[in-house]
Design a protein around this nucleic acid. Structure first.
Lengths: 341, 341
DNA sequence: AATGATCAGTAAAACGTTTTAATGAGGCTA
DNA sequence: TAGCCTCATTAAAACGTTTTACTGATCATT
């Protein structure tokens, strides 16, 4: 445990026989400095082992050289087998892209609601993953004037026009219910989260329209995100009792989906024979559950890259479109939704 | 694009009719301030929309309130299907644990070699994943006096005694070759990375000892991490020609492993009938390749938590053990190493 | 009534850098 | 030679906070 170096730009200046301003200019190549002088300064830096103090530099310049990735999805959703799957997949791609731009990426996992104490997080810009309507992060970030890009459509209020990369909930919904219909399902239902997220609204709206057109009675349940898998489990059992006619189920959140699978299985309901199931995010959950879950390749890596590019625009005060359509989601059909043999 | 608020502690002080010092004390509860005064200050903060400037705070206090996670594994290894799998799994757990301690987590993906320009990354402490012997990150961090904990054993030199959480390469190696032997393999080989990493040394040493004891001739190849999957592909084909007797292969790096699978498959070599294969990290690669790869549950979430706890000790100047044994790695037997039927 | 504690608050220094405005030395033009 | 640029450099201000050391006032103790 060494004591951190206390060599400052002043020491370097003294050693090199110049002024601190010149040292600064030499380091940052802000202004031209004589080659001889530069050499002396370089020597002094090497000799003294000088390392610039970033905290001071940032105070002075006002830049943090950092991007933050936020997710307001509560712990119970993010944790478990897939860890922070959805978030991490985006974070990984964003981190790679950010690094190329000389920015570091700060990972902000879900905080307990009501305590958005991210007072210790500072970034020049932020990516917010699937914000809820009254998203605390989003509000606070806007309040602080931090440029934000959402991944997934945010609240559509007139005042809060944050740019976003569309995750195309409508396309996903239409595709999956089309798939259900083609494999013979007659009464497909929907589980979404109870939280007021645009993604849920979009899905529900699309679903109800499909139901109206196809002529089946929509069955929707709203699950509490904080309860995690158990919410899916219980909702599934309730659904089996109250709506025995239902023969397919789209569960938007993968955590709920695995819970629902357990719920049906315990009642002896065969998947996919008696009940087809699908979810949206193709994470470890979808792939490892038995039966393996039909889901979507959302191309999150591309989504992340698009979002970061848009964010850099925003940070650079450059104008850009409010909405960006990412790559089209592709359905991945697996055992959980095959047609009965 | 709003201009960021310029409300300072001085404005708040003026508005509340007190001094800046008192405002600071009120905000941080550093000293007792009269309840009436506190109320006035709170009102002023709310009224003016004051948000503390973290850059200034950090300069003054000297704390960054951040932890960084580094990985020196080059891009070609980390990228691809599993993205930064190994790193991200650790990062996710560490981020969660860090947040509970009011620290944010900075993700530093692999940088192009030779240019460790992480001058823009500042943290109170760092986690370094499987450092190489002459790890640039490790050297620079130590030079800067940043407390570091390694994940996986670092170089064993006398001067650089960084604490670490052991990933137990020896146990992994013994377990896998034991498994190979039990499933009938007579001439098992080893692929490791060419980079000078302790993890590779440990594995190779253990392997050679096993070979000596069991009486088979050791076959080891060293692959270039920068070439990614292709290195595995070519090494496999070379191995098939030069050592036709080899009937099992442990590939420590999962990226090489999937490459090797392709290499053997192209030559019509049946896995596992003719050649058993296993790798170490149970990431997406291991699970999704055909055939699915035998690998290990390294319990990276627990490893990350242990590492972070140890790091906090280090940051708090508290003494601690240099080596921590994490949870024992558990083998996950899959198709790629089953005994031939 | 003198001494000394305790208390809430404050003035000013400090953190280490970058940036602004100023300086003096040459060189060139008129 | 005076005036005017250009040039490399610098002194000092600024960034916004926390912390140190000090100040009166109030209050209890002798």
């Amino acid at each position: 445990m060494k004591k951190t170096n206390k060599v400052t730009v002043i020491d370097v200046a003294r050693f090199a026989g110049v002024s601190p301003a010149t040292v600064s200019n030499a380091i940052n190549s802000t202004r031209y400095v004589d080659v001889e002088t530069k050499k002396k300064i370089d020597r002094a830096i090497a000799e003294l082992g000088y390392v610039p103090n970033l905290k001071a530099r940032r105070l002075r310049t006002g830049k943090a050289n950092a991007i933050a990735v936020f997710s307001s999805m509560p712990f119970s959703i993010s944790a478990g087998p897939s860890r922070l799957g959805f978030m991490m997949e985006i974070a990984a791609s964003a981190a790679v892209a950010a690094l190329e731009k000389q920015l570091s990426l700060i990972l902000v996992p879900p905080l307990p609601a009501g305590d958005p104490s991210f007072d210790h997080v500072e970034a020049d810009g932020a990516l917010v993953i699937e914000p809820s309507t009254d998203d605390l992060y989003l509000a606070e970030l806007k309040k602080r004037g931090v440029p934000v890009v959402a991944i997934g459509r945010p609240n559509t209020g007139p005042s809060t026009n944050v740019p976003y990369v569309d995750l195309q909930a409508k396309t996903v919904t239409e595709t999956i219910f089309d798939h259900f219909r083609q494999t013979g399902a007659r009464a497909p239902a929907l589980f979404v989260g109870r939280t007021d997220r645009m993604a849920f609204h979009e899905t529900e709206t699309a679903y109800r329209r499909i139901a109206a057109q196809a002529g089946f009675a929509p069955v929707v349940d709203y699950l509490d995100e904080r309860q995690g898998e158990d919410a899916g489990f219980e909702a599934a059992q309730k659904l089996a009792r109250s709506h025995p006619e239902v023969d397919a189920l789209f569960v938007q959140v993968d955590t709920f989906a695995t819970g629902a699978v357990r719920g049906f299985s315990e009642l002896g309901i065969d998947i996919p024979g008696r009940m087809r199931i699908a979810t949206r995010y193709d994470g470890v959950r979808a792939r490892e559950t038995t039966p393996r879950l039909t889901s979507f390749n959302l191309h999150l890596d591309e989504v992340a890259k698009l979002a970061l590019d848009r964010l850099l625009q925003e940070m650079g005060q450059m104008p850009g479109p409010q909405s960006i359509a990412g790559p089209a989601p592709e359905i991945i059909v697996r055992d959980s939704s095959m047609a009965p043999t």
